[in-house]
C-alpha cells in the first residue's frame, strides 16, 4: 500500500450570504494515496470545485484540517504556502480563461520556472521549457504561439505543461476535459494517464462525467450538496452502488449503446438550497426511499463493505444485506 500523500479531516467551507451561511463543503474527510487518482463526482453546486480550491489554498478554510505528507498545512504562512504551491498544482476546466492571452506558449510554461528561480540561465530555461512541451506533446514550433491561435485540446496541453513544470506531486484537475470534444477528450485523458505513470503524479480528479471518472480513477467519492454520500474503490462502486443518489446518478447516464435494459431511476425535483440546511439527509427531498428519520437527522458516513463508505440511514434495508 502506498503512503498517504494528502489527508483531509472534517473540512468545512461556509460562505456567508445575506440569507445565512451557505454550506458549500460540509465535513469532508478522505485520504489520497501517493501515485493514485481520487475521482470526485457530483452535479453542479455540490461543492466539488470548492473542495479542490480549499486544498490548494485558493480559498480560506472555515474549519477542519488538511495534511500534506503528514504535515498540517491548514493555515500556512506565506513562505510556507510558496513552498507548498511548488508541490501542488491545478488544471482548470476552461483552458482559455486560465492562460494569459498576452504570453506565448513558452512564456506560460516557463513562468513557474522563472518565479521559483529553477533555471540558472536563459539557455537552461529554454531547454527545460522545450522538454516540458515535448512531455505534453506540443511540438517546439508552438513556442512563440499565443493561446488564441491554439485549439482547445492544445490549450489544455499548455495548461498541463504549466502545471507539471515544477515537478509537483499533487495535481488537482477541475473538469479538465469537459470543455473538449470527445475525440480530443480521449487524447487528453491518455496524456494524463501517461504523465501519472512517467512522473508518479497523484491526482484529485473533479468531474461530473461518470464514464470519465471510471476510466481514470482508482477511488471515487460521490458528493451531494456539500457532503460525501458514498466513497469506494472504482470497480466496487460500479458493481454495487449503495446510496440511492449514486444509483440514480449512474442510471441517468445516457449510454452510447442500443438494446441495453434501462431501469432508469428518475429523480423528483431539483437540488435543495445549501443555505442553512436543516439537520437532515440532504438528499431526502428527492429520494425515493426517504422516511421520517431521513428528515430528522443527518446520516453519518459508515463502512458498509471493506473500503466502501455510505452515508444513508436505510443503506442496509435498501440493499438487502
Amino acid at each position: 500500500m502506498e503512503k498517504t500523500l494528502l489527508e483531509v479531516k472534517n473540512l468545512k467551507k461556509y460562505f456567508s450570504t445575506s440569507a445565512g451561511p451557505l454550506h458549500a463543503v460540509d465535513s469532508i474527510s478522505f485520504k489520497l494515496r501517493r501515485g493514485t487518482t481520487l475521482g470526485v463526482v457530483g452535479e453542479s453546486g455540490c461543492g466539488k470545485s470548492t473542495l479542490g480550491r480549499l486544498i490548494l489554498h485558493l480559498l480560506p478554510v472555515t474549519d477542519g484540517q488538511i495534511f500534506y505528507d503528514g504535515e498540517d498545512i491548514t493555515n500556512p504562512n506565506r513562505k510556507k504556502l510558496r513552498l507548498l504551491r511548488r508541490n501542488m498544482q491545478m488544471v482548470f476546466q476552461d483552458p482559455y480563461s486560465s492562460l494569459n492571452p498576452r504570453q506565448t506558449v513558452a512564456d506560460i510554461i516557463g513562468e513557474p520556472l522563472v518565479i521559483y528561480k529553477v533555471s540558472e540561465s536563459k539557455k537552461d530555461l529554454g531547454i527545460r521549457t522545450r522538454d516540458i512541451m515535448e512531455i505534453v506533446g506540443l511540438p517546439s514550433r508552438y513556442e512563440t504561439t499565443y493561446p488564441h491561435e491554439l485549439d482547445g485540446g492544445r490549450r489544455q496541453r499548455v495548461g498541463l505543461g504549466r502545471a507539471i513544470a515544477l515537478n509537483p506531486q499533487l495535481i488537482v484537475c477541475d473538469e479538465p476535459v469537459s470543455a473538449l470534444d470527445v475525440s480530443i477528450q480521449a487524447q487528453i485523458l491518455n496524456l494524463l494517464q501517461d504523465l501519472q505513470k512517467q512522473l508518479g503524479l497523484t491526482y484529485l480528479f473533479i468531474t461530473h462525467d461518470l464514464s470519465v471518472v471510471k476510466h481514470i480513477s482508482d477511488e471515487i467519492m460521490v458528493m451531494y450538496l456539500g457532503v460525501m454520500v458514498e466513497k469506494s474503490p472504482t470497480d466496487d462502486l460500479f458493481k454495487w452502488q449503495l446510496h440511492p443518489y449514486t444509483k440514480a446518478l449512474l442510471s441517468a447516464i445516457p449510454q452510447a449503446k442500443l438494446g441495453i435494459k434501462k431501469d432508469r431511476i428518475l429523480l423528483r425535483g431539483e437540488l435543495s438550497s445549501p443555505i442553512n440546511p436543516p439537520n437532515a439527509c440532504r438528499f431526502a427531498p428527492r429520494c425515493n426511499y426517504a422516511i421520517d428519520m431521513c428528515y430528522r437527522s443527518n446520516p453519518s458516513l459508515e463502512k458498509v463493505l471493506p473500503d466502501h463508505f455510505v452515508a444513508c440511514h436505510r443503506v442496509r434495508e435498501i440493499n438487502e444485506f
Binding site: V182, L189, S211, A256
Partner: peptide, 24 residues
C-alpha cells in the same frame, strides 16, 4: 468508429482510449 472508440465505456474497462489522432 473513432467517435465510438473515444468514449470511455462504462461496462468494459479499457486501460487506454483509442483517441482519433490529430484535429478537426
Amino acid at each position: 468508429i473513432g467517435l465510438f472508440n473515444s468514449l470511455p465505456d462504462l461496462d468494459s474497462p479499457t486501460s487506454r482510449l483509442n483517441a482519433i489522432p490529430g484535429l478537426m
